[in-house]
Design a protein around this nucleic acid. Structure first.
Length: 710
DNA sequence: AGCACGCCGACT
DNA sequence: GTCGGCGTGCTC
């Protein structure tokens, strides 16, 4: 008796190989079994997709090679996981094996069967001792507000994805915690997946979950899964999730593809965050896959009978318009928690019209004065500027030279601290020239402001300001540069918490998640620069960013009240008349969303229309565009072509990065189904078009379904 | 995608 | 003389 298992390996859709490869095996292999198979000269990890007892047609015996090794001891990946992977591969136009293998920990690929057995044994042993840990008193959950209570109850019985629309500080995390507890207590094998948009946000959430659940389920019951972990940690975490030993998995977008056989609750925190959309490889939206995954789990659970469900919660103070629209239509269940815990008020908006401020001032004088007042009272301030470095450009006043990157169509940023010019796109770094490289003029000067300069200027402006104890005000900066070294993020957060720092200057990263109880003033500098960009999502992003940043202020109602002052959100803008600010002033996200959705509907934009991008990287811009336009031409006559609009190829905003020219072509459809079917039919055509003479110089192409920016 | 094989520049 | 750059082609 022999079998012909179809095995998926890490070959992408555009490699020309079908979705799976057929091997030979003496044994019948359960679908989902992990195997090692010969592929060319090497041996690779693969997943058995099915295992028919008949040889395939059109494939000779000589072509079929034998399965080299079966990873016994590792339970097969279940049908729900395989369905999720299959859906993701189809929907995002990638190879089945590419998605499947990307969802497995990289170390699993090069681990021998013996090593794996050892790993599993170790894990098993740890599980054995987990139950013996001294039972600590169960962590007491705080009493819930009425809003939280309602949310929790609804969550328990909801028959649709739940949008938890909660103001910053309304206690969403406590709802996640208690929902997790509910799910875990309902079933001994139940697992919960909690996702956050960024690695930075995992430590504090992990701490909250550990504090609550370690006494109940032991330390091994919670694992983290994100790309910042070492390969060994990732393998261990993945194995724990796959074997069910981990009851709670906390991670970034990659965690949505982890094997979780007992999944009963998925939490997507800050669901609007663009980081959930992967930007390379398979460009999937972890949020959308989370919703799909819950659906698959629920279909399986209801087929088994009983009323167990896998719930999915999308949490945000400023939901994505896609999610908001789904809630409007009743596809998602909207739960609102408008009140802050402790009765704190949301910060008052102070709009500064920069047209009426002294020319050249980065910070409006009234804002500086307001900050000085706060510092003198022992309060902290936060200033947001979304630009690293000292200045975005260095220029020669004489000949007009600018600090262009030789490899990219972008300027290199002036970093004063280490006297370098750095390209933020390709990483090319040089020491700042003493004189203009073109004309030798010594008068080269920075143009525009970055966080380094803002920190420097603020330190100067606040030099004479004293804190209540008479010590001088202290300014600190937090951005990707200041937190690059391991542990420095934690260190910087600690100095902020301890109150050593009065003013924190930083990029977007300071707006997310971190709770500093003494912050009562938040300022957005140059925040509206995004509004001038052509990106139709710019207002949505700006609103979310300002709302999130504003949410950092006045989190501790008791502190704010004791200070006798209200918290404030200052925004410096050149377009104060923009309707976005009216809604922001009222903290009225629903009004903002309604206005934006009306605009989107009129323009046929998402979520009313559906989009995909065909992107091309090439030696020359001409080749990139020629390939794209040829692909568009070759689409004639494909199924659903008449329901699709193909736009002409255009260069990306940053046309060249690291000497690679980039272009893209927008694909639009009014129906998701038509777009999907068209893209599937287009895929083989895209492969063929690579061989066209005009596409000479093409390096790669990729389809981006539901792109976040166009 | 990997990863082999294969052909041209700066180093032990 | 090699090490190594990445261009081209293949994987049941």
């Amino acid at each position: 008796m022999a079998f012909w298992p179809n095995v998926v390996v890490a070959t992408p859709a555009h490699s020309g190989v079908g979705s799976s490869l057929t091997y030979r095996s003496e044994l019948s292999l359960t679908p989902g079994t992990l195997v090692r198979v010969p592929l060319g000269a090497r041996e690779v990890l693969g997943v058995v997709w099915d295992c028919p007892p008949q040889p395939p047609e059109g494939l000779t015996d000589a072509q079929t090679r034998a399965v080299a090794d079966v990873l016994v001891g590792l339970p097969p990946l279940n049908a729900r996981w395989r369905q999720l992977v299959k859906f993701a591969a189809q929907y995002y136009q990638r190879g089945l094996g590419e998605v499947a293998l990307a969802a497995l920990p990289p170390q699993l690929r090069d681990l021998s069967t013996v090593q794996l057995a050892r790993r599993l044994k170790k894990q098993e042993k740890a599980r054995g001792t987990a139950g013996d840990t001294t039972p600590s008193p169960p962590a007491s959950a705080p009493a819930l507000s009425d809003e939280q209570q309602t949310a929790l109850q609804t969550l328990d019985t909801a028959k649709a994805p739940v949008l938890l629309f909660g103001a910053t500080g309304s206690g969403k995390t406590e709802v996640y915690l208690q929902a997790t507890q509910q799910a875990l207590e309902a079933h001994t094998d139940a697992q919960v997946l909690v996702m956050v948009p960024e690695i930075n946000l995992t430590p504090q959430l992990e701490a909250r979950f550990r504090e609550r659940f370690e006494p109940l389920f032991g330390a091994d019951a919670l694992v983290c899964l994100h790309s910042g972990m070492t390969p060994a940690q990732r393998l261990a975490g993945w194995l724990a999730a796959h074997t069910g030993q981990a009851r709670i998995v906390l991670g970034t977008r990659m965690a949505v593809l982890a094997s979780l056989p007992g999944l009963r609750l998925i939490v997507v925190d800050e669901e609007h965050d663009p980081s959930y959309k992967s930007q390379e490889g398979a460009r999937y939206s972890a949020r959308d896959l989370a919703v799909y995954r819950a659906k698959v789990e629920n279909e399986a659970l209801s087929a088994q009978g009983g009323n167990a469900r896998c719930q999915v919660v999308l949490g945000s103070a400023t939901p994505s318009l896609e999610t908001w629209h789904a809630a409007d239509q009743g596809r998602y269940l909207r739960l609102s928690m408008p009140a802050r815990i402790g009765g704190g008020a949301l910060p008052r908006l102070r709009l500064v019209d920069m047209n009426h401020q002294p020319k050249g001032a980065v910070l409006a004088p009234p804002l500086v004065a307001a900050m000085a007042e706060r510092i003198a009272r022992g309060e902290q301030c936060m200033v947001l500027l979304n630009r690293r470095g000292y200045a975005p450009v260095l220029a020669c006043h004489d000949c007009g030279w600018k600090s262009a990157c030789p490899h990219c169509s972008a300027y290199r940023v002036f970093h004063k601290l280490d006297r370098t010019l750095r390209c933020h796109h390709c990483g090319f770094t040089e020491r700042v020239p003493r004189a203009c490289p073109d004309c030798g003029n010594l008068d080269i000067a920075p143009i525009g402001k970055g966080t380094e300069q803002l920190e420097e200027q603020l330190a100067g402006l606040l030099a004479n300001v004293q804190r209540p104890d008479g010590s001088p005000a202290r300014v600190a900066r937090m951005d990707a540069d200041s937190t690059r070294l391991k542990g420095s993020l934690e260190q910087q957060l600690a100095t902020m918490h301890s109150g050593e720092v009065d003013v924190l200057v930083g990029t977007q990263m300071i707006a997310k998640g971190h709770d500093f109880r003494r912050i009562t003033l938040v300022a957005g500098i140059n925040a509206d620069s995004g509004l001038f960009a052509s990106d139709y999502r710019a207002p949505e992003r700006l609103f979310a960013l300002l709302m999130q940043a504003g949410g950092r202020a006045g989190r501790d109602a008791a502190f704010v009240n004791s200070q006798g002052s209200a918290s404030e959100m200052w925004v410096q803008t050149w377009t104060p008349q923009h309707p976005l600010f009216d809604a922001l002033r009222r903290h009225d996200f629903p009004a903002f969303a309604a206005q934006q959705l009306a605009e989107r509907e009129n323009a046929g934009m998402p979520p009313f229309g559906h989009q995909a991008l065909l992107r091309a990287d090439a030696r020359s811009q001409q080749a990139a565009q020629a390939y794209l336009n040829a692909a568009a031409q070759a689409a004639d006559g494909l199924p659903h072509r008449d329901e699709i609009t193909l736009y002409p190829a255009v260069p990306l905003t940053i046309q060249r990065v690291a000497n690679v020219e980039r272009a893209q072509l927008l694909v639009e459809a009014s129906s998701r189904g038509a777009l999907q079917r068209f893209l599937s039919a287009w895929q083989p055509v895209l492969l063929e078009c690579r061989a066209l003479p005009q596409a000479r110089g093409l390096i790669r192409f990729a389809v981006d379904v539901d792109p976040l920016s166009i």
